[in-house]
Structure formats: structure tokens, C-alpha cells
Design a protein around this nucleic acid. Structure first.
Lengths: 139, 139
DNA sequence: GTAATTGCAAATACTTTGCCACGTA
DNA sequence: TACGTGGCAAAGTATTTGCAATTAC
């Protein structure tokens, strides 16, 4: 968390209340959140405008502090990029719940191979599993 | 292709010109396409309305004939589900080009494990690699 | 004949931008 | 004080729906 704020300073972002609370919210949630969710969250809704959250997320993504994800919903999701924390998810197609997967990620090898064979730079991947959770499939 | 049309018939979809051309377009493209791309494509633009394409894609996705993907853009992507054809992609964050990856997918094992451990049903995954292609990183 | 399908237009959802005021370094 | 930030409101982009007309089965 302090490390994240330090990274923001290092890339030239000003330390504003909105920035701190946005990072704090993402950090505590430990799961991807949408712009709308974030802007409406307890810590941010009375603090700043949705446009501000949008522009903050944009800057943070630009500097690699957060990452923008697809995740199948109409809205984009944002997640904090924490070194050493890997981000694969299990998503219920019924209720939309998102669970982080702890298991060691099996695609690093393939990623290396792609890097070598294609010459792509700044490679990273996104891996999501979709399915019906026990609760939803029980209905 | 004929098999795909047969599947549509089997799930009760009526064989309309729009359906045939939509499937044909997706089949020939062999890559995910957006609703807007599809509706504006040569084979469909003069044949039917965008709303029709939208509703067709919706029904097809419901019946598992196509799959809706995120892929990071604002627009949703749709791809034909062909048995035995696997769908992992390499996407350039610069120009947006999408390449299908042929390599054997390394996550089946993890998928099995998740199925066993979580009780999720109808599990499938989405795997994408993002990076700058040689052309874009050369600029 | 009848229920699924379609077109057109209008509504919605989410994002993105313009412009001027403000606050941090 | 200078430039990055922020608020508010308006515009943009992609999707989604209502309803009457049409068409496949």
C-alpha cells in the first residue's frame, strides 16, 4: 500500500485525497472493481466526482499501477497491480461473483514461448474461468 | 459449418438468411468480431439490421454456438465455438490486432482442479496474452 | 395459422471529453 | 505560480428494448 503510493509519486502523480482513497479502496477490495462501483463506494462517493475516478484510473493504468480487465461485463474492471500477486479469476456466470484464484498460474511457460517466438514486448496475460457456482446451479 | 447450422436447427432456431450469413461470416473470419463489425460486414450490412445481428448473437450465445468475449475493448467480441478448436488469443495493445494461438492450452489441468474443488458447473476459460507486436514496438 | 424473427426508432448503460476553477509541489 | 487535478455538464459509443410487421415452419 505504501509501496503503491510511492510508485505513484515516482511516476509524477500528485498525492491527492482522491488518489489515496481510490488506491485504498482497490487495495482493500482485493478484487477487480468497475468505475461505477468505485465512484459509488463509501470512501469515494462523497469525496470526488466519477470523472475524477475515471481520470485517475486512466493515469494509473497508463503507469502500470492498476490494470484494466474485460471480465465479460459491459463495464470495465480495474485491479491493483501488486508485485508478486497474481491475478487469475473464477467468475460465476449466474450471479457475477468474482473469486481470485490462488493456484500457481500454469501459463508462464507458454508466455515465455510466445515472447520468444513472436517478438511481442511487454507481454502479460489475462486468465479467467467462467462457470455456474454451486449456489446458482442449485436453483 | 454445416454442422453449426445443424446445431442451430437442433436448438430450435429458424433458418433465416441472416442466421446463415452471420454464421458464415464468423466462420470465415476465424477470429472474434464485434457486433458493430459484423453488422457492417459486406455479407450482413445490406441484409439485416444491427438489432437483428445483436439478437442472433444473443440467442447463439445462449445455446453455446458462439461465445462472447471481453478482449479489453469497449465492444464485446463474438467467436464461433467449433468443437476441438481452442480459442486463446494474442492481442497487440498497440494496433489491436488479434491472433489465435495454436499452442496446446496449458490450463486444462487447472480447470479440472477448479471443477473438483469448487463445484462450479459448465466451466470454461478465457485466456489472452497482451503485448506490443514487433511492428508497434518498433515505432 | 402461429410463434419466432425482424426493422425501426427510442431508451439505456457506461465512458469520455470540454472548459474553467482549484490545489499541490 | 505553474501545471497537474477536479467538478459539472454535455457528448460519444456500444448496447438493449418496445412494438408492430413479417416470415419460417
Amino acid at each position: 500500500m505504501t509501496a503503491t503510493i510511492a510508485r505513484c509519486r515516482d511516476v509524477g502523480l500528485r498525492r491527492t485525497k482522491a488518489l489515496e482513497e481510490l488506491l485504498g479502496t482497490l487495495h482493500d477490495a482485493a478484487r477487480p472493481m468497475t468505475l461505477t462501483e468505485l465512484a459509488a463506494s463509501e470512501r469515494l462517493s462523497n469525496l470526488c466526482d466519477k470523472a475524477t475516478v475515471f481520470r485517475l484510473l486512466q493515469r494509473l493504468a497508463q503507469h502500470g499501477v492498476v490494470r484494466r480487465l474485460g471480465l465479460h461485463e459491459r463495464a470495465a474492471y480495474f485491479t491493483l497491480l501488486v508485485p508478486d500477486r497474481h491475478n487469475d479469476y473464477l467468475i460465476c456466470t449466474g450471479c457475477g461473483s468474482i473469486t481470485a484464484i490462488n493456484a500457481p498460474c500454469p501459463v508462464h511457460e507458454l508466455e515465455e514461448q510466445i515472447r520468444r517466438q513472436t517478438g511481442y514486448r511487454n507481454l502479460y496475460h489475462e486468465l479467467e474461468f467462467f462457470g455456474l457456482c454451486p449456489t446458482c446451479s442449485g436453483v
